[in-house]
Design a binder for these strands. Structure first.
Length: 232
DNA sequence: TCGCGCCTGCGTCAAACGTG
DNA sequence: CACGTTTGACGCAGGCGCGA
């Protein structure tokens, strides 16, 4: 089997076009097997070629093969502008600290955002007031201070301008790193949520198009019956 | 019951991308 | 161009189903 993975960019150009090998359906360590990711494909392609020689492939090389596609938000919003039925992912409101952007109409199973272990609970306390009226059973959460929040002492570190000793500089560096990790943690969560949203949107669009297609086929058959000469 | 494979979600890193 | 954001990749952990 050889499948082409082609993704069109906003400007219509082609970002990716690579062959998917037989084993491209293999899972990652994490077992993510919805669709073989581009890097998986790249890895597989390279592994097939250099299996006997090098073996270890530099991750940088792998990444070089990849080029990014537009964000899910962009894709989805573009879809929504083309197709009336497709919901938009709203822009994040910068003023609302710690709140997730609410989605307009996509219905998502309630259990999605919570792990079975409940470890997600602590940082995703429900904020009922934030629930979008049109979302039905779509949960929307307000992010509380994450459990990995910085220790009080670190948060109270001196501002960069007043740093003198190497220790203070180190503390500042640590604080910055913690802050960056915390932000990225939240960003990753949000990104995953958007990705799910995106996939669901595509699935619903497929469903709609399938129905349309079926209707058109039926219509065509009817017209054929009407137009065809009767054989009495 | 235990081991195994699969699935899902998370945190982190790195690189592309967006913005002021 | 510096800095923040977004997202693919990776590795890990926990839950679940299934066969031995």
């Amino acid at each position: 089997m050889t499948t082409e993975i082609i993704e069109s960019q906003q400007d219509g150009s082609i970002t990716h076009s690579m062959a998917e090998s037989e084993s491209a359906h293999m899972q990652t360590q994490a077992g993510q097997n919805l669709i073989p990711t581009l890097a998986q494909v790249a890895t597989i392609a390279e592994t097939d070629e250099s299996a006997g020689s090098e073996g270890v492939i530099d991750s940088h090389k792998r990444r070089e093969i990849l080029s990014r596609r537009p964000s899910y938000r962009k894709i989805l919003n573009e879809l929504s502008s083309d197709v009336p039925g497709v919901p938009k992912i709203e822009e994040e409101k910068s003023g609302e600290e710690g709140t997730l952007p609410h989605i307009t109409t996509m219905a998502v199973p309630t259990s999605i955002y919570q792990t079975s272990t409940g470890q997600y609970n602590e940082e995703t306390e429900l904020a009922p007031s934030h629930m979008a009226a049109t979302t039905g059973d779509m949960p929307t959460y307000q992010i509380r201070a994450p459990t990995t929040a910085l220790p009080q002492g670190v948060m109270m570190a001196a501002s960069p301008g007043s740093l003198h000793s190497p220790q203070q500089l180190a503390e500042e560096a640590t604080r910055k790193r913690e802050l960056r990790l915390m932000k990225n943690r939240e960003a990753a969560k949000e990104c995953r949520r958007r990705k799910k949203e995106y996939v669901k949107c595509l699935e619903s669009r497929v469903a709609v198009l399938e129905v349309q297609n079926k209707k058109l086929i039926e219509e065509l058959e009817t017209l054929k019956d009407i137009c065809s000469p009767k054989t009495d």
